[in-house]
Design a protein around this nucleic acid. Structure first.
Lengths: 324, 324
DNA sequence: AAGCTGGGTGAACAAACGTGCAAGGAGGGG
DNA sequence: CCCCTCCTTGCACGTTTGTTCACCCAGCTT
């Protein structure tokens, strides 16, 4: 980028800021703003879009504390976590649900992440959807770290995972640490060996002291299998073993049962995500769930105390608090 | 208000929140939202207006820290205060300027005031303009206190000042403390006597420990005299005395010279605003100025170190940093 | 110099939005 | 019980806004 480009860039930002100020603070119409900035109305429209897309304009919804939705209150009482219920009409498809929850999370995420923080991020369809919409917020000295490996039998998975991570990193101006290992090792011994490598253990230590974790839930036996199961990461015997163990879901390749327990689940010795005892040390653990198919996984994750902040679509939230 | 009304109210808030969420977080059109909420598009439009007017939706403009306007930077360097320059076209009238600066301040004020804080507020045309637009933000246990008396020879001034204060109080859910004294006493002795009254000294103590002060500037000899001079608060001899003393402005009825000094200005013994030594103990001192007519007053106030945060229209800001 | 390309611009059109207005409904008073 | 008042609603209209398209200009290639 040339010097000229840079200053043009900053001109654009300055104009965008001015336009935003005139539009949102002084309630001028775009026409009036166009006149003040000596440009056309369409350009102002574009400037304002740009301002919103780049996070220059930050729109927050602050529910007066006495009026969180009935559902959010119920969930808080039942599970002692903060719930963010995303309104979605009952007849929406699961794809819709995912997209709309992801959009909401993308807009609100900036409130949980700030300068000098470390955020751990899983990957999968949910994270992918969020990453495509995340609103930028400039931070300094912050880091984003991949929670679990992404390779499978066919590919290293790096491009998919790194695309997701990259979008978060770009949006927050954060340094991205990738985790270049397969999602599941073929042998526990290899994992243990690699875990002792300094380059890897450096990442593990960083995971251990992250400030925020962001993840979706896997649900191996639901109708809409998540990426882990569709992408050729596991094989038939693995599924059988999961089924025998009574597994209901996973967070970043670590599986758990309906009661939240993980002991004796053999596959976990080969998974690459953070052990739950490590994860539970993270102050904010943001979990994004959409679609009732993941209800069982969600209940298990709650039992396992993996979640401090839950983002969920309305129907699923309703199902969660319904008497079973 | 009946019980039914109350729950209808909370229904309305809930709907407004949902609508806001769908509109600002999920980018649905009002039409789509109307459909989801089973109402008409116009009602959604009104719901959203309501949501913005009542502060449910909070729109902030966050300049990436490396790009505050050139003017704000210059002012910061020259005067060591934070400046908020409000863009206003050069050809705008002074009334326009005031209105637009006031609107901007009204929208941004919530960022400076929070629960359990005490804010001191002056009164006058600037404060009046702000009060008419201030965006609500619910706080708890916060207080708003009148900085100086408002009575004059003809009226107690209570209705004017209390209207202003009341609007701030209502917007923030804060308790309002009025200051039922004239703007200027006829005799210093009366002031001193009253100042010893417990009811008054309670207010003075509260002033001494306020967290934020919000005020405009008076400029006795400018083209557009501010309320204090137009409203019959002072008489000919007073003006003459001010003129002799070299006064360039006042904050809440306390006058100062171009160099920021106040010593020997006799009228100050009869004014009712907080002494500058008291005012300077307030952590955040927000000053709102519009129009170059107040430039001299502004320079004086800066010299007197009365300001930590300045809100000013663009032309005045430009004049402020121009080489004299 | 001519040609190409990518990014930005304003005009024009279509979509989305705000608001005055008349109608309807709930609550309170006669 | 009826009427009056106040508030809310949906419609219709005019306005405001988003977006497509053709165009232009700067920088680079041939």
């Amino acid at each position: 980028m040339s010097l000229v480009d840079e200053s043009a860039q900053s001109d654009r930002v300055r104009d965008a800021l001015t336009a935003a100020h005139l539009y949102y603070m002084q309630d001028l119409t775009m026409d009036a703003i166009a006149h003040e900035l000596h440009t056309s109305r369409s350009s102002v429209s574009r400037l304002l879009s740009h301002a919103r897309a780049t996070g220059l304009v930050d729109i927050q919804i602050r529910s007066p504390l006495d009026a969180p939705s009935r559902l959010e209150l119920l969930i808080q009482e039942r599970f002692h976590i903060t719930a963010h219920v995303v309104p979605v009409p009952d007849h929406a498809t699961d794809v819709d649900r995912l997209e709309r929850v992801a959009l909401s999370v993308a807009r609100i995420l900036g409130q949980f992440f700030d300068s000098n923080m470390v955020m751990g991020i899983a990957w999968g369809s949910t994270m992918n959807a969020i990453s495509r919409h995340v609103t930028p917020k400039q931070t300094h000295g912050s880091q984003i770290i991949q929670l679990n490996g992404a390779g499978n039998m066919r590919t290293t998975g790096l491009s998919y995972a790194s695309e997701i991570l990259g979008r978060f990193g770009y949006a927050f101006g954060a340094h991205v640490h990738q985790f270049p290992v397969p999602a599941f090792f073929d042998s526990p011994a290899t994992k243990q060996a690699l875990w002792r490598e300094r380059s890897v253990s450096r990442l593990l230590e960083m995971q251990a002291r992250m400030d925020v974790a962001l993840f979706g839930l896997g649900s191996p036996f639901s109708e809409v299998p998540s990426h882990v199961y569709a992408g050729g990461y596991l094989e038939e015997p693995d599924y059988a073993s999961l089924s025998r163990s009574g597994v209901v879901g996973d967070v970043a390749t670590i599986f758990y049962r309906a009661d939240g327990s993980t002991d004796g689940i053999q596959l976990n010795a080969r998974g690459t995500g953070p052990d739950f005892t490590v994860l539970r040390q993270t102050p904010r653990r943001l979990c994004v769930v959409s679609g009732t198919a993941k209800l069982a996984s969600l209940r298990g994750a709650l039992k396992a105390d993996l979640i401090t902040d839950l983002f969920v679509d309305e129907s699923t939230a309703r199902a969660l608090v319904a008497n079973i």
